[in-house]
């Protein structure tokens, strides 16, 4: 499956619909310290969110019988968090087909495709939601300043230095 995915990228460019970056509604994200091997709707607001308490040292919640401690982490300045979805293959030929009513606006944009960059068989992605912070949860303990995900969030500032143009002589 992996190799077929790789072939796909060469064959099908994946376009990110720019307009979805503006229209994405804010989302609530929790970064959980456990594997949940499924991707599907879940009643987070019914069972998880109401159980969150503000403890003396950060947020607390019980999940699957385990105690989690959490804290909010901000997305670094000048960055925005997005949740992206790949559109169904049926939607890919969206220049002709209109997949869902809510995406009509995007289709309008697509009526002016950028030259030959978009090809009929290309695939499309869009941002379904945006976020500027998320909650990082640790098992039993607060993730704290050493949380690996925090380290990942500093990458953009370091990358900026690595990739900045060099000073001319």
């Amino acid at each position: 499956m992996e190799s077929s995915d790789e072939e796909d990228v060469v064959k099908y460019r994946v376009h990110l619909r720019p307009i979805t970056l503006r229209n994405a509604a804010p989302a609530t994200l929790h970064f959980l310290p456990c594997e949940i091997p499924v991707n599907r709707p879940a009643p987070v607001e019914r069972f998880f969110t109401p159980a969150i308490r503000q403890g003396p040292r950060g947020l607390e919640v019980s999940f699957r019988g385990r105690s989690l401690r959490g804290e909010e982490v901000e997305v670094p300045p000048s960055l925005v968090g997005y949740v992206m979805r790949m559109e169904e293959k049926g939607e890919v030929s969206g220049k002709q087909d209109f997949p869902e009513g809510s995406e009509d606006e995007e289709e309008q944009e697509l009526l002016e495709p950028p030259e030959a960059l978009e090809r009929d068989f290309d695939r499309f992605m869009g941002a379904s939601a945006s976020f500027s912070r998320f909650t990082v949860w640790g098992l039993e303990t607060i993730p704290g300043p050493d949380a690996k995900v925090r380290a990942a969030l500093t990458w953009p500032s370091l990358a900026a230095a690595i990739h900045a143009p060099v000073q001319e002589d």
Partner: peptide, 10 residues
Amino acid sequence: HHSWFINQSV
């Protein structure tokens, strides 16, 4: 061993 809750989904 990490996962996301994104709104009402996992």
